[in-house]
Simulated assay, not measured.
Amino acid sequence: MSALTPELEIARFLRQLKWIAVILAAGWVVWALAPILTPFVLAALLGWLGDPLVDRLERRGRSRNTAVVLVFILMLLLLVLLLLVLVPLLERQVRTLVSSLPAYRDWFVQVALPWIEQRTGLELMVWLDPERLFTWVREHWQQAGGAAATLFGYLSRSGFAMVAWVANIVLLPILTFYFLRDWDLLVERVASLVPRDHVDTVARLARESNDVLGAFLRGQFLVMIALGVIYAAGLSLVGLKLGMLIGLVAGLISFIPYLGTATGVVLGLLAAVVQAQGLDLGLLLMVAGVFVAGQMLEGYVLTPRIVGDRIGLHPMAVIFAIMAGGQLFGFLGMLLALPVAAVANVLLRFAHERYRQSDLYTGEQVRIVLDTTPSAPPVPPTEQERQ
């Protein structure tokens, strides 16, 4: 294999440097525009999920616009049905939570704080005295004023953020409709930009990424719904008053490995202690048993049958991807973390395959391996062969 000339080496390095600069610039743009990119990313995901059904309706003779309208109406009907089912349940659970707040307050003041004081030696009860609080504020009025200004600034920023969220919610169905209508056109335009020498490789990676993302997004969504139903029904059956609310919350955040279960266990045990006004061992064991059963169903039935093992993401990789995405790009990063990690896993498998075939792995010199296995002794010719 002939070595590259210094000029070619420099040219290749500059090309690589150019692509690195392009990637860094794209990352900076995403970071800067993260607040306004969120509805576009959500709409693109919904358009990607609905495009197969649109294509199926087109193959059955309907026009693209008609198929898009039918799928869009179906999405809206599913959303309305979900709201009609969940809103009354959540409303009753919220009313139960509000009516239970005095019991939680009494338990915190009369049980939790004295227990903490006995074991740590800290004086926490005195800070609940209003006169002491007013005295402390008068003594530290300057710091209190600065904290108040910071708090009002945060609330004003939160108000603007709330307005932005409302605008994003209004934009989401509009953007979803356009993504559904023009999805195939967008894919064709992106495919036309791929260098002709790499079309086959990019097409293969795109198919694998599409399979992985489809398996993950559709499967994980079904697993989240199933776990929410299992937890909510189980906690309600064992007699936990806030079981429906805690179960739904635990199911919805179960896309982060173990976080949904851990959150549900903590909230469920705390709710059981306050509800029983003490340690009701039977109720605590039943609450814990619901989450143990849910984890076993998820690990042995739901995830293997619905999601499958085509994703290949380790739980630590999932946790790292979500935390890194949230740290770098906020909510948009958390939204994109797992899809990006799944696609990156496909690219890493491809890079590993290319590495195993490269000269760096196999070596540039061809090795001659001698066959040292003993050969069988020659068979003497027969009488007919000698004649």
Rank of each mutant, 00 (worst) to 15 (best):
Ile311Tyr: 03
Ile225Ser: 01
Ser2Arg: 13
Leu180Ile: 06
Val69Trp: 12
Leu245Thr: 09
Leu360Ala: 09
Val366Trp: 03
Leu8Cys: 06
Gly308Ala: 05
Glu7Leu: 13
Pro304Asn: 01
Leu82Phe: 14
Pro35Cys: 13
Leu186Arg: 03
Gln16Met: 14
Leu259His: 07
Pro88Ile: 01
Leu57Glu: 02
Val111Thr: 15
Met244Trp: 11
Leu77Cys: 10
Gly326Asn: 11
Leu53Gln: 12
Val287Ser: 02
Ile36Val: 12
Glu383Lys: 05
Leu252Phe: 12
Tyr231Ile: 01
Gly239Met: 06
Gly159Asn: 09
Gln277Lys: 13
Asp129Thr: 02
Leu171Pro: 04
Ala276Lys: 05
Phe329Thr: 13
Gln110Ser: 11
Phe108Val: 12
Val29Lys: 10
Gln357Val: 13
Gly289Cys: 02
Met296Phe: 05
Gly260Glu: 04
Glu208Pro: 01
Ser358Cys: 07
Leu281Met: 10
Gly146Thr: 09
Ile368Thr: 12
Leu285Glu: 04
Pro35Ser: 10
Leu235His: 03
Gln142Tyr: 11
Val273Ala: 07
Leu74Gly: 15
Leu370Ile: 10
Val166Trp: 07
Met162Thr: 10
Asp197Ala: 11
Arg349Glu: 04
Gly330Asn: 15
Leu252Val: 13
Arg349Trp: 03
Val212Trp: 01
Met224Trp: 00
Leu33Met: 10
Tyr231Val: 00
Asn345His: 11
Met334Ala: 14
Thr372Asp: 10
Gly278Ile: 04
Leu313Ile: 02
Val111Gln: 12
Phe40Gly: 15
Val229Cys: 08
Val292Gln: 00
Leu285Ser: 04
Phe221Asp: 02
Leu338Val: 09
Arg119Cys: 07
Ala203Trp: 00
Val80Phe: 04
Arg157Cys: 08
Trp28Met: 08
Val170Leu: 10
Thr150Tyr: 10
Gly308Trp: 00
Glu139Gly: 14
Arg189Thr: 12
Leu313Met: 10
Leu335Lys: 07
Thr263His: 14
Met286His: 14
Pro35Ala: 12
Arg386Lys: 08
Val287Arg: 00
Trp115Lys: 11
Leu70Met: 15
Pro380Phe: 03
Ala44Cys: 10
Arg92Asn: 12
Glu58Pro: 02
Leu128Cys: 02
Ile319Cys: 07
Gly214Cys: 01
Met296Ala: 14
Asp184Lys: 08
Leu128Trp: 02
Arg204His: 03
Val54Lys: 02
Ile311Leu: 11
Leu242Asp: 03
Tyr300Cys: 00
Phe179Val: 06
Val87Ser: 05
Ala148Leu: 13
Arg181His: 05
Glu131Gln: 08
